[in-house]
Design a protein around this nucleic acid. Structure first.
Lengths: 209, 209
DNA sequence: CTTTTTATGTGAAATAATTCACATAATTAT
DNA sequence: ATAATTATGTGAATTATTTCACATAAAAAG
């Protein structure tokens, strides 16, 4: 299991902010103000950049264009990334319509579901039966998958994906997946996310722990 | 800004696993195996429990029923939590159909959108125009909101929610919200989540930083 | 009743993440 | 030219998190 480093997630966040700054016409930015926008300490931002070998101009801040380019290279985004969507229920379908992905060189190339009524070919990408999953991943050399199936099916579906050659999975199920060390898993647990909020707003012990 | 403590998110994860164990008929569990299922070190699990004052039985592990009860109390889940859903686009709608919430004493009581075509009253909860947001939160004393609006509208919508009395927000927009210190924000940035995966599977520097 | 076993609970140690604070060098002002 | 200014880049210090390792007490075995 590979642990996510905070500086990696922050790098992605910086990029998102930089793109927004660029879109409003800015072309230079200082560590202080970018850190501000990202809600981090400016020393942290500079240290993050230092970790990745990103340098700015002494006294002159950072050139936004160049910065975005460097970050995208570092994140591995120089090419387009085909992704499979496994589980086309409510959540999966919503994700597939999430337009931000397309902007970011990420495209869902196929969906998979065990429910026959979900299969179709008229949308932005075809939806196949899950039994095709292994073949599709192999044939198209897909490396990344979004897993949006019920908890009960998560581990077995994940195993199929790994067996077929997937290298990274965004897991929306609440299952903690057991995964070989060379496959990277990032978990988004919606229930946990909401419960965390309930804790910080309602728990009798929130100020004591 | 209140920082999320990892032991809080883990507590929620433990609960989710415990419920699954219970549903398959188990009634006792040892730190070692629960930690295993949660993919954490067993000392960490015991330390987490210790932070929250949860104790087990020397040599006898933990009683699952009691453990679930204790955790739910600690998380602040003894009562039902009404939640508003702000932004009823694709993502918002999918979240509203996410059935896991209901099981967990979380219920979406109203949706809000600026798009007239999204307004309706036939679903599980009514969808009102966003201009009603302030009033609704005040009148029903809602404390928690799910923010699923485009980045451009996120901060201003958030400000309205805070002004009306919201105490916790699950933010799905990519905006880093500026928030008063007594309002808790938990961010889920899907783009960042996928980019993190791309980094760990594709970055030229993934093994060096 | 005594001994052995074993899983909890927690100080101490190790590791990781963040922040401080300042030397440095480019830029601007004088 | 020289001096003053100011934002970067980074060691050192701090703070937070995780893991180790073992004393302890309950249970089981003898």
């Amino acid at each position: 299991m590979v642990a996510i480093k905070n500086h990696v997630t922050r790098l992605s966040k910086y990029k998102s902010i930089l793109k927004r700054l660029k879109s409003v016409g800015m072309n230079r930015v200082f560590a202080e103000s970018l850190a501000d926008a990202a809600n981090v300490n400016s020393a942290q931002l500079r240290k993050d950049f230092s970790i990745f070998g990103i340098t700015g101009n002494k006294k002159g801040g950072y050139q936004i264009d160049i910065l975005i380019e460097k970050i995208e290279f570092l994140l591995g985004k120089s090419k387009n990334h085909p992704v499979v969507l496994v589980g086309c229920g409510n959540l999966g379908t919503a994700l597939s319509r999430y337009s931000e992905f397309e902007k970011e060189n990420i495209s869902i190339v196929a969906g998979f579901d065990i429910d026959e009524t979900k299969l179709e070919n008229s949308g932005k990408f075809p939806v196949y039966h899950s039994c095709e999953l292994n073949n599709f991943i192999r044939e198209h050399k897909i490396e990344i998958g979004i897993l949006a199936v019920p908890a009960a099916a998560a581990q077995s579906t994940f195993d199929i994906m790994v067996e077929a050659g997937i290298k990274g999975v965004l897991n929306f199920s609440s299952m903690v997946l057991r995964s070989p060390s060379d496959v990277f898993v990032n978990n988004i647990d919606l229930e946990m996310a909401l419960e965390t909020i309930i804790f910080y707003t309602n728990s009798p012990v929130k100020d004591q722990v």
